[in-house]
Amino acid sequence: MLILFVLINPIEWCVAQESDSSKQEQQQKPPADQDCIKPPLPTQKNEHWMESFHHTVSNSVYQSALWFDNFFLEEGLEQETPKTTARIRLGWEPKARDWAEFDTRFRVKVRLPHFKDRVDLIFSDDDDNTQSSLPLESADTRKDLEDESFSAAVRYTHRRSKNRILESRIGISGGDIFFRVKHNRRFTWNEKNSFKIEPSVYYFLDDGLGAKLLLEYDYQMNKKTQLRINYSVRGSAEYSGLRWKHGAYYLHQLDQKSASITTIQAEGERNGERGFVIDKYRLSHRYRFNALRSWIFFEIEPFLEWPEKENYTTTPGIALRIEGFFSRG
């Protein structure tokens, strides 16, 4: 249902209140309280099919956001332009003993201008921490510890500055209603070192109260190379123990259109029924590049895994992904 909502334009409608002014003035200048959906951007007749597809998706997301934001438009105010972004990723991740591993992700974000750019609508089948960010030199390598599930949420930003963000989010994830508060604080010194602390508290109606903490240290070796180390831990009333993940990452900007990330990760559980357990080790090298169009990115990621369920047997694999970005506003 969500994909149809995103990819299909809503019905374009216009509700104008009659005024006592003359029809000539109405034809020359529309009334200020006229709530109209703007038409999509025109496309050229000889436009390449890839650009036509990009415009179609971008316009569809934008028109849906404009239609929704129009409900919150106060009478007498002009319609402002919302900011919309959509990210769609398709991937095939074959590995030893499992050649049918496919990965599809999408994320739609809408910023509503009539809430002073403090309110975002987010639709996703993945947590925003798992998505690769742009530009490439700041590619995010973190993976969330929670199970993948579709979520739809309204996010409100209480405070935003260069080194601090305080936000809250309410929505539905995996069929369960949740509420979350997250605080992101970064400390920087010597222009090369930075440390981030990101605590969050959340509550699910079915699973109860929970909390998560992310600690991250970044060392900027030079303009194109960064070393990153992070640690995350999560606990909730649903689990008897704590879920944790360690990671070390070497990020390198190759040129303006490509970058690579070498990763070493370990994840597991502690203080649970089995005590301290390591679920999996992982070593990977991800090569990401931009090709064909400015909005299309490709990834090639060979990796080695040592999962507990396979008695830590070496499991080689490779991930092949294509990702498209669609934005307007």
Rank of each mutant, 00 (worst) to 15 (best):
I172G: 08
Q131D: 12
S60A: 02
F53D: 15
D120G: 03
F204Y: 15
W306T: 08
S133T: 00
I322H: 01
G175F: 09
Y202K: 07
E269L: 10
I11A: 15
L205F: 06
L41P: 02
S294K: 13
S236I: 05
T314Y: 03
I296V: 11
P135W: 03
G210F: 01
Y231V: 12
S64F: 13
L145C: 04
A237V: 15
L283H: 08
H158T: 06
I278N: 12
D218I: 09
D218R: 14
G324Q: 06
V154H: 06
I3K: 14
K143G: 02
K95P: 03
R159G: 00
P42E: 11
Q34A: 10
K29G: 03
Q79F: 03
F325P: 08
F187W: 11
H114R: 07
L90N: 04
E18V: 10
I177Q: 05
I318Y: 14
G272R: 13
S240D: 12
A96S: 12
N9D: 13
A266M: 06
A100S: 10
F303Y: 13
L292P: 05
K196V: 13
Y203H: 09
P30S: 01
V119D: 05
S19C: 00
M50D: 06
R321Q: 09
S258P: 13
A291F: 15
E267K: 12
S149L: 00
F298I: 09
L2Y: 01
E146H: 08
R185T: 05
Q253H: 11
E267W: 14
D98H: 12
T56C: 08
T313L: 09
L227I: 10
L251P: 14
E137F: 13
R243T: 07
I172P: 07
V277N: 09
K95N: 11
E323A: 11
Y62H: 15
L209H: 06
Y249E: 12
L254S: 03
I11S: 11
E51M: 09
F150S: 01
W99R: 10
N193S: 11
D218C: 05
I88D: 00
S21E: 03
I172S: 11
W99D: 04
N70K: 15
E267P: 12
D33C: 04
T84W: 13
H158Y: 14
T81M: 12
V233H: 01
K116D: 11
E299Y: 01
R321P: 00
C14F: 04
E216N: 10
N59H: 08
F106L: 05
P10K: 06
S161K: 05
E78Q: 15
E74P: 03
K116R: 10
L205D: 10
S284C: 02
N184M: 11
D103I: 00
S19A: 00
G329R: 06
K23Y: 00
Q79R: 10
F204V: 01
P135G: 07
F178D: 02
L251G: 07
I172T: 09
A291E: 11
G76Y: 05
G171K: 07
F297M: 08
N46A: 05
P199L: 03
E191Q: 15
L215W: 14
E51W: 07
Y287T: 07
Q256M: 08
R107E: 01
